[in-house]
């Protein structure tokens, strides 16, 4: 039954996200909220559906943070995006 509750939560969060678009939230605020909500949803899926809660292969404690580091590194591409926009 827990799975159904998690699923209902996921659907509810999806509707909240769509609702943010519905009420035309300002883009920057909306992006921030959407990212937070998406991370929560991803965490719910990983924690419950992918069984991170009960079965956690040992390397994941190191590798999952590593993934975040890599994504953070990739974000260093964004300043060049800004400069490319300025050069247009």
């Amino acid at each position: 039954m827990t799975y159904v509750k998690v699923w209902i939560g996921l659907v509810a969060l999806t509707l909240v996200e769509a609702g943010l678009a519905w009420i035309r939230t300002a883009p920057t605020l909306m992006l921030a909220l959407l990212l937070v909500l998406s991370l929560i949803k991803a965490a719910l899926i990983a924690w419950w559906f992918m069984h991170l809660r009960t079965h956690r292969p040992k390397p994941l404690t190191v590798l999952i943070p590593m993934l975040f580091v890599f994504v953070g590194l990739l974000l260093s591409l964004l300043p060049d995006g800004i400069r490319a926009g300025a050069m247009r």
């Binding site: 943010l20 883009p27 959407l34 899926i45 990983a46 559906f49 992918m50």
Partner: peptide
């Protein structure tokens, strides 16, 4: 399968809602 679902949780807001 859940991973494919998880990825969509980012595509839906970023590609559609934004």
């Amino acid at each position: 399968w859940h991973f494919v679902d998880l990825v969509w949780m980012f595509i839906f807001p970023l590609v559609y809602l934004m």
